[in-house]
């Protein structure tokens, strides 16, 4: 009897906690909403009507497992040096990391790219992260001296078989 009573007491407790769960979720949702509102100072936009929905179903993309090998982030190809995560977070939201890794610029050059993206492409204000991002880019993706014309590089030698055409 005593044992059963204890059990019932415990179940009640669990049940009570369970009852508070929706309220708990609501509270979290509201705080997130508040956070967004705070960030934007503009609550109306959160309730802005949706743009027309695309006919194609939205694909759910599983978040990849990140990994760094040989000093490089395997997911993006970014050099895993100080600040790379900041670069990934801010730059690859819109475009591929390849647009970074294939380019070489001085700090000023990278700064111009950022300004251009802010003026024309909808890039947000990077705040104090801009310095970190610029340091990272200027260090890891700096111009190389290559003269008026580089020598032919990465030649893959192969034996040419006679071909008719």
């Amino acid at each position: 009897m005593k044992k059963a009573n204890t059990h019932t007491g415990f179940s009640k407790l669990v049940y009570a906690v369970f009852l508070t769960l929706p309220a708990f979720i609501l509270a979290i949702s509201l705080s997130i909403l508040a956070l967004i509102t705070y960030q934007n100072n503009h609550i109306a936009d959160v309730f802005k009507p949706k743009p027309p929905r695309p006919a194609t179903p939205v694909l759910v993309i599983p978040e990849p497992v990140d990994g760094i090998r040989n000093g490089m982030d395997m997911r993006t190809g970014l050099i895993a040096d100080d600040g790379w995560e900041m670069v990934r977070a801010n730059c690859t939201a819109c475009h591929s990391a390849k647009l970074i890794t294939q380019n070489r610029q001085t700090r000023d050059g990278w700064k111009e790219v950022i300004a251009w993206m802010q003026e024309t492409q909808g890039l947000w204000d990077l705040g104090k992260n801009e310095d970190l991002i610029l340091d990272y880019l200027a260090k890891n993706y700096a111009p190389e001296a290559k003269g008026r014309r580089a020598r032919l590089q990465n030649i893959q030698w192969y034996v040419l078989k006679e071909s008719k055409n």
């Binding site: 979720i25 997130i32 960030q39 934007n40 819109c94 802010q118 890039l123």
Partner: peptide
């Protein structure tokens, strides 16, 4: 302000939040 809002909203963290809300 719009630009930073868009950027903020687009981050995947917020995408997950959106599902919650």
């Amino acid at each position: 302000g719009d630009i930073s809002r868009r950027g903020f909203l687009r981050n995947s963290v917020v995408a997950a939040m959106g599902t919650l809300i």
